[in-house]
């Protein structure tokens, strides 16, 4: 599955919110076909990293390469068009719109027929087929997670970014979510999953990065990180 070309490469990224220096010299890469996790405690800069990758916020310095091209100065819409997709923190569904409309928004940039992808999403989450006319805001948390994932998949991404998929879900639903992530990964999509739940994330990842107050403090294979004694205590605050 894995080959050597990096699909995504961040080099020396520095991101600020106003005067506050959030991301400090972040470098990381995700190779095609990999499942990488980014671990870190609250406010360590995980979501900011994803927003920087997507171009929702711009880094003050550093470069972002995606699929062989420098996208540092490109718009979010361009990057999505090139094959990025995200399941945002807290899912961020369009609550007053139906499940189907939410899924369609995932395919917003696609001009081709996406009925096949819709079928695939319904296959992955059969429940959504029954709920397609229901307003997204009235779904349960677990159902919303399915819509958020389905919505991201509707763009047929090369790289799927996931911001804390386990947040606010019961353990059984967390497990289901991670199973789906694995399925998507096995279907050939590269994945970057941001998590505070280190065990869960490392159990499915190839590689992991650990972020603490805006810096990468550890980067290694998932096996090594799983064995790492002080990881959780030192960096994840638990």
């Amino acid at each position: 599955m894995t080959d050597s070309t990096p699909l995504l490469k961040l080099s020396d990224i520095n991101t600020f919110y106003g005067q506050i220096h959030i991301l400090q010299d972040i470098s990381m890469e995700i190779r095609s076909g990999e499942l990488v996790c980014l671990l870190g405690g609250n406010a360590s800069g995980k979501s900011t990293t994803l927003k920087t990758i997507l171009g929702i916020v711009s880094p003050r310095s550093g470069t972002i390469e995606f699929d062989g091209a420098d996208v540092t100065d490109k718009s979010t819409s361009f990057r999505i068009g090139q094959g990025m997709a995200i399941v945002p923190e807290n899912r961020r569904l369009f609550a007053p719109m139906t499940v189907l409309e939410n899924l369609e928004m995932g395919a917003y940039l696609r001009d081709d027929d996406h009925s096949e992808d819709l079928e695939q999403v319904y296959e992955l989450f059969p429940l959504l087929a029954d709920r397609k006319s229901q307003l997204a805001g009235t779904l349960s948390g677990g159902e919303q997670q399915m819509v958020a994932m389905g919505r991201a998949l509707m763009s047929r991404p090369k790289l799927l970014l996931m911001d804390e998929p386990s947040m606010g879900l019961a353990p059984i639903l967390v497990e289901q979510s991670f199973e789906i992530i694995q399925q998507v990964h096995q279907a050939g999509v590269s994945v970057l999953v941001v998590e505070q739940n280190a065990n869960m994330a490392l159990s499915i990842a190839d590689h992991g990065y650990v972020l603490a107050t805006g810096r990468i403090v550890l980067a290694d294979t998932a096996e090594v990180l799983t064995e790492h004694e002080g990881l959780k205590k030192a960096y994840l605050g638990r």
């Binding site: 929702i56 819409s77 961020r92 928004m105 763009s155």
Partner: peptide, 22 residues
Amino acid sequence: RTGKAVRAVSFDREAAAMMGID
């Protein structure tokens, strides 16, 4: 599609941008 994008942006501008909506 554009009409729905208007509703999406009205509800949550950042999430809409995350879908690739300009």
